[in-house]
Design a protein around this nucleic acid. Structure first.
Lengths: 209, 209
DNA sequence: TGAATATCTTTACAGTGTAAAGATTATGCG
DNA sequence: CGCATAATCTTTACACTGTAAAGATATTCA
């Protein structure tokens, strides 16, 4: 986990930029987004508190790279979820994958939507978010019978934002334990496996299939 | 805005507890949730940094009261939104009211779903959240044709959590400016007035009405 | 080789939340 | 009423935080 200290590794780290991103990501995986501090991240990388600023300009710069990492992983899962089945089935699978991602990586997920902590102009973030949304858009285009490069029509737009909002809200509410009061699910996994698909069915699939 | 300082008001404040809640709420309305600090809140109330702890035990205790205040306002709006129309119309109106609340009070809204900042056992919070969810549940019971005191059936449960998740996700994504890339709306208000109802229609009303 | 540059450290500063102990006022009881 | 007790607020202090500025060290390239 911990990197070598200055004494054992010499003055220059060699791979500090990536090491800091990994350390920050690990830290958030352990203690959640609110457990993150720049100094602790530096400590774990075996480096002084001011070192990260040279590579990222400051805390938001580093966090943005971690968020980009999260969007890339999310995009990967969204693409994987849309490989089989009818367009409607694929959209449903992407919704499940979205929530699954949030439950697997709560720290990353929360970070990815905290625009007060991120530098939205940072290229890596723009590209990574683009990958994720493109994966959703592609599926909706298929449902609408539009060609791949086309602009979504109005109904498709509502569809995309609808599924996204539903999955996003469900993920947030589950992580915040707000649904326990209503649904009698044992675990978060249970909510994802059973409750969420039921909601999607009630909302979408009956209309589409 | 600022309260009297110690010299002009004497040693005891007289109404410090409420004054601190108001100051914290004001501060968040101005600078957002991340602009809140306990010390600044104390400063605005004209009181020492350690004074709040006596009334609220600490920062989370105070924030919990602000969140409860938010839930009461939300409940008020949800009830008001469900006063006219068919059950399906009322649920839609409640969804719009939910998002409207989030756009009107971003600071409160974000706080209300940050369980890491709140003391969920605090009575005022439990009661206030109960009021809000009851307002939604009542409408869904009417849609399902169940009596007021009954437990929601499975489909009703999916319905309640569905509308809640969708409104919640839409509110979050709008506040985070994530939808700008897809929808060509001018303002957040535009999104609420036009886009969100269109989504609800696509999702719900066609099925219910 | 030597100068320029990139990288990391040291030091310092203005913030933060809150624990502990002291000062002041209000309250309730004889 | 008078006084002990409790409630309320202040002061002081501490361990944190992010980061700006300046110094130390290694790498790179002409």
């Amino acid at each position: 986990m911990n990197e070598k200290k200055t004494a054992e590794r010499g003055y220059h780290h060699g791979d500090l930029r990536d090491a800091l991103i990994r350390a920050a990501d690990d830290l958030m995986a352990e203690k959640g987004l609110e457990g993150f501090t720049l100094r602790e991240t530096a400590r774990r990388a075996g480096v002084s508190p001011a070192a990260p600023s040279h590579h990222f300009g400051g805390s938001p710069g580093l966090l943005t790279e971690v968020a980009a990492l999260g969007y890339r992983e999310l995009a990967r899962r969204l693409v994987a979820a849309s490989e089989t089945g009818s367009p409607a089935d694929r959209l449903k699978a992407q919704g499940v994958a979205y929530v699954r991602f949030a439950l697997d990586f709560p720290g990353r997920f929360h970070l990815m939507f905290r625009h007060d902590l991120l530098v939205k102009e940072q290229l890596s973030l723009e590209q990574a978010t683009g990958q994720a949304w493109d994966a959703l858009e592609k599926t909706v285009l298929a449902i609408r019978g539009q060609s791949e490069g086309a602009e979504l029509d109005a109904e498709g737009e509502a569809m995309l934002i609808g599924i996204w909002s539903t999955a996003h809200g469900f993920a947030h509410l589950t992580l915040d334990k707000k649904l326990a009061r209503i649904a009698e699910c044992d675990s978060d996994d249970d909510m994802l496996e059973n409750l969420f698909p039921a909601i999607i069915d009630t909302l979408w699939v009956k209309k589409l299939g």
